[in-house]
């Protein structure tokens, strides 16, 4: 009798896992970069392409790094949220314009408002690869020492921002 129960036991375990699986997103890739230093780069700025900047220049600040593009529809979804964050002023937002025409990106910012302190221009997407970007928008929280502390894939939501990013940023700013 007992050994005939083995298949049922295995099946029950399987069902539990499948049940948990229903709540997970198989396509979301966790970043191995969390807790690691933010990869360095030196890129031209959207505000003035003759000027270059690097994340190293932001040492000593806690900042939000938002990868976006003018051709990215879901980036528009989070735009208002970023604008309100920028107005609030508690956490500076730096953008990276991913594989885009700088002119298009400037037009978007002119039309919908500019939440970014500065926006890096990543024309060929190389810098984004270093950050493990696989779909825009993606958002990283970087601390005073230049360490990546949090990553969000996909458009930011109010819940993620208020529930995770801002409390963590507050803690890091101390």
């Amino acid at each position: 009798m007992k050994r005939f129960l083995i298949p049922l036991g295995i099946f029950i375990v399987l069902v539990i896992f499948l049940g948990i699986g229903l709540k997970l997103n198989p396509r979301e890739v966790p970043s191995p970069l969390i807790g690691k230093p933010a990869p360095d780069f030196r890129l031209a700025l959207l505000s003035d392409p003759s000027r270059q900047m690097s994340p190293a220049d932001l040492r000593g600040k806690v900042w939000l790094f938002n990868v976006w593009a003018s051709w990215c529809g879901s980036c528009r979804q989070e735009h208002d949220l970023l604008l309100s964050l920028a107005r609030q002023g508690s956490l500076p937002v730096y953008g990276m314009d991913y594989k885009d025409q700088p002119g298009d990106a400037q037009a978007v910012l002119a039309r919908f408002g500019n939440p970014y302190v500065e926006t890096f221009i990543d024309l060929d997407g190389r810098a984004a690869i270093d950050y493990g970007v696989y779909g825009v928008p993606e958002t990283y929280l970087i601390d005073k020492n230049g360490t990546i502390r949090y990553k969000h894939t996909g458009p930011l939501t109010r819940e993620v921002l208020d529930g995770k990013i801002l409390p963590l940023a507050k803690e890091l700013q101390r």
Partner: peptide
Amino acid sequence: LTQRYGDF
């Protein structure tokens, strides 16, 4: 690649 994207 794994440094950037993990074992995935």
